[in-house]
C-alpha cells in the first residue's frame, strides 16, 4: 500500500518535522507569557523574563483571584457561555436548514439569504445600538449578554454549507417515507453534522467567553460583569500617553505579571474544553457510525 513506499515515508518525516516546528513557534509566546505571570514584578518590569520564571511568585494570580468579584464573574461567564452558545446553535441550526435548500425547493430562499448576508456587512454602529438596548430595557440585565448575540450570520452561512454536504439521497428517502422537515433536520441532518456543530459551538463559545465590551457598556454593576469584563477592569489597558495619573495608580497598575496571569486565567477554560471537542474533528468517526 502507499504508506509503505519510500517516498511516502520521506514525506512523512519531513511533514511531521515541519508541523512540529510550526507548532513550537506557536507556543513560545504563550510560554513566555506564562513565565512572566509566574515571575516577580521587579523582574517582569525589567523585561528580564524569557521562557522560565524569574523569582517565582504567585502574587499575580492571587491578586486576580482573591477578589470578591472573581468567583461571581466566573459563574456569570459560565452561564453566559453555556446559555449563549446553546441559543446561538439553536437559532443557527434552525436558520441554516431552510437556507441550505435549493431555491427550487424553497421559494424565497435567496431573498432570505441576502437579508442575512446584508447584515454581515452593514451595521448602524454603536449609538443606535445603545439606544436600542436602552429602549428594549435590556440595560443591566443578564439577557443583554446573550439575546443580541443570538443571530450570528457568519455561523449560519458556515452551518448552511455543512448541511449541503449531507447526501441528498438520505433526505429524499425520508420524505418519501412521509417525514416532515422537522424530522429530516433533527434526525438526519443533525446527527450527520456533529463535526460542524462542534466547530460552531467552539466558535460561539470562544466568542462568548472572550467578549467583554458589551459587559462594560451595558452593565453598571461590577457584580454583574462576566469574567472577561472583570479581567479587563483588573488591569491596565490605560492610555499611557495621557498624563492623568499618579504614583499610587502606577504602583498598582503597571503590573505586567498581573496582565499575563489574566490571560491565562481567561484562556484556561477554553484550552481545557478544546481537546474534548477535538474528538469530533477526527475523520470518519461520524459518517462511519451513521452509515450502517
Amino acid at each position: 500500500m502507499y504508506h509503505k513506499t519510500l517516498s511516502w515515508r520521506v514525506f512523512n518525516v519531513f511533514n511531521i518535522a515541519f508541523l512540529s516546528v510550526l507548532a513550537v513557534i506557536c507556543v513560545i509566546p504563550l510560554v513566555h507569557v506564562l513565565a512572566v505571570s509566574l515571575s516577580a514584578k521587579s523582574a517582569a518590569d525589567a523585561n528580564l523574563v524569557g521562557l522560565w520564571p524569574v523569582d517565582f511568585s504567585l502574587e499575580a494570580y492571587k491578586a486576580t483571584i482573591n477578589n470578591k468579584y472573581f468567583l461571581g464573574s466566573l459563574w456569570i461567564s459560565v452561564m453566559r457561555t453555556a446559555l449563549g452558545t446553546a441559543l446561538i446553535l439553536l437559532v443557527t441550526v434552525l436558520a441554516a436548514y431552510p437556507l441550505s435548500k435549493e431555491p427550487r425547493e424553497f421559494r424565497g430562499r435567496s431573498v432570505y439569504a441576502w437579508l442575512f448576508v446584508f447584515t454581515l456587512i452593514f451595521n448602524g454602529g454603536l449609538v443606535p445600538f445603545y439606544i436600542l438596548i436602552l429602549k428594549l430595557g435590556l440595560m443591566n440585565k443578564f439577557a443583554v449578554l446573550i439575546i443580541p448575540a443570538m443571530v450570528n450570520v457568519w455561523l449560519i452561512v458556515l452551518m448552511m454549507n455543512f448541511f449541503r454536504g449531507v447526501p441528498r439521497a438520505l433526505e429524499e428517502a425520508a420524505f418519501i417515507d412521509g417525514a416532515s422537515h422537522w424530522d429530516v433536520l433533527f434526525r438526519i441532518y443533525l446527527p450527520l453534522s456533529l463535526p460542524a456543530l462542534a466547530t460552531l459551538g467552539l466558535f460561539a463559545g470562544v466568542w462568548h467567553w472572550n467578549s467583554w465590551f458589551d459587559g462594560l457598556l451595558y452593565l453598571s454593576r461590577k457584580e454583574d460583569y462576566p469574567l472577561a469584563t472583570y479581567l479587563q477592569t483588573v488591569i491596565v489597558s490605560r492610555d499611557m500617553s495621557s498624563m492623568n495619573f499618579t504614583i499610587e495608580e502606577m504602583q498598582l497598575l503597571s503590573q505586567k505579571t498581573i496582565n499575563a496571569a489574566q490571560i491565562f486565567i481567561g484562556a484556561l477554560p477554553v484550552l481545557i474544553v478544546y481537546p474534548f471537542l477535538q474528538r469530533y474533528f477526527i475523520k470518519g468517526l461520524v459518517l462511519g457510525s451513521v452509515k450502517e
Binding site: 436602552l134 429602549k135 428594549l136 430595557g137 435590556l138 440595560m139 443591566n140 440585565k141 439577557a143 439575546i147 443570538m150 453598571s220
Partner: peptide, 16 residues
Amino acid sequence: LVSACGGSKNGGSSDG
C-alpha cells in the same frame, strides 16, 4: 425574544 425586549415598557429602564 419579544418578551425580553418588551419587558422594558414599564420601568425596566435600568440605567434608569
